[in-house]
Amino acid sequence: MITMQYRIVLPADYDMAIIRKRIAERGHLTDDFPRLAFKAYLYADRTAAYAKDRENLYAPFYLWRDTEGMNAFLGGAGFAGVIDSFGRPVVNTWSVWHAQVATDLSIATYATREIAPIAHHIALGELRDTEHARVQEDVERGALAAVTAFDPTHWTLLRFRLWRNVVEVADKNIDVYQVGHISQPSAKHDS
């Protein structure tokens, strides 16, 4: 599995209703996308209490079953639409260590994302085991999806969670997003 996210920073006075409308009109287009585990259409509105005057963002997050699905999306019409609207964003990817995903993510309303540097002295195997335990803890705390992954190019760790309700985060390095739509092909086909 592989994760992918691009974050489009929008002006401070940007009308975020435009992003919510975009998600409402286009979110369903990835509901049946092959090899997609889920796509969370995420945004942050700097005026909302959870955002604490941070940036306005449009920041979809993807969990792919393999790189074939990711490549098909990046080379297809959906991503071409992103480029047409916002220019070509930097697409970050991480190799998945652990992913626990509820059968139906449609009740997710918020997401958290943390990127942390991996210290040089930490053994990756030990870190992977520690992160597995953290995934379990967050699922027990109510996370509907908990994904931990790493980027060996920049030696960073990703912790991504989907939540039913907003969660309090004290760490300014943890981004909080609202969920506009979830595409989860397996949930649609399992019901």
Rank of each mutant, 00 (worst) to 15 (best):
F160E: 07
A116Y: 04
M1G: 07
S186H: 09
E131W: 04
S95H: 09
G180L: 08
I174E: 05
V9W: 02
H181A: 10
Q136R: 04
D45I: 08
G142T: 05
H98N: 09
I122V: 15
G27R: 01
M70A: 13
K172Y: 09
Y50I: 05
H121M: 10
V139R: 10
N165E: 15
V167W: 03
A12G: 07
K188L: 12
R134W: 10
G81T: 13
P60V: 09
R113V: 10
Q178S: 12
Y50V: 05
Y14P: 04
H132F: 07
T112S: 09
R7E: 10
R113C: 12
L127D: 01
M16Q: 03
I8C: 11
A37S: 13
R164C: 09
E114P: 03
K39Q: 10
L127A: 06
T153H: 11
E114L: 11
T30K: 07
A111E: 05
P60S: 08
G76T: 14
R7N: 09
H28V: 14
I83Y: 13
R113T: 11
S106D: 10
R161L: 03
F38A: 03
K52P: 02
Y50R: 05
L42W: 02
E131S: 12
A108P: 01
R7T: 14
A123S: 08
I18Q: 06
L124P: 02
A37V: 14
R54K: 13
A133R: 06
T3G: 01
W97Q: 04
P185T: 15
H189E: 14
G78T: 15
Q178H: 08
N71W: 10
V139A: 10
L63F: 04
E55S: 12
M4C: 12
A40Q: 03
I19G: 00
E126R: 05
E168S: 09
L162D: 02
V179D: 08
A77Y: 13
A123D: 11
K172A: 15
D84T: 13
L57D: 08
Y62E: 01
L74N: 02
I122E: 14
D84Q: 14
A146Y: 05
R128S: 04
V179I: 11
T109H: 15
P117A: 14
R161N: 04
M70Y: 06
A99W: 03
A170R: 14
A102K: 01
S95P: 00
P117D: 13
R20Q: 10
L157K: 07
V91S: 04
P152L: 06
M4K: 05
D84C: 07
V90F: 08
D104E: 05
E137C: 00
A119R: 05
V139I: 14
P117F: 07
W94S: 09
A80T: 12
P117N: 11
H98V: 07
Y58C: 06
L29Y: 00
S85I: 11
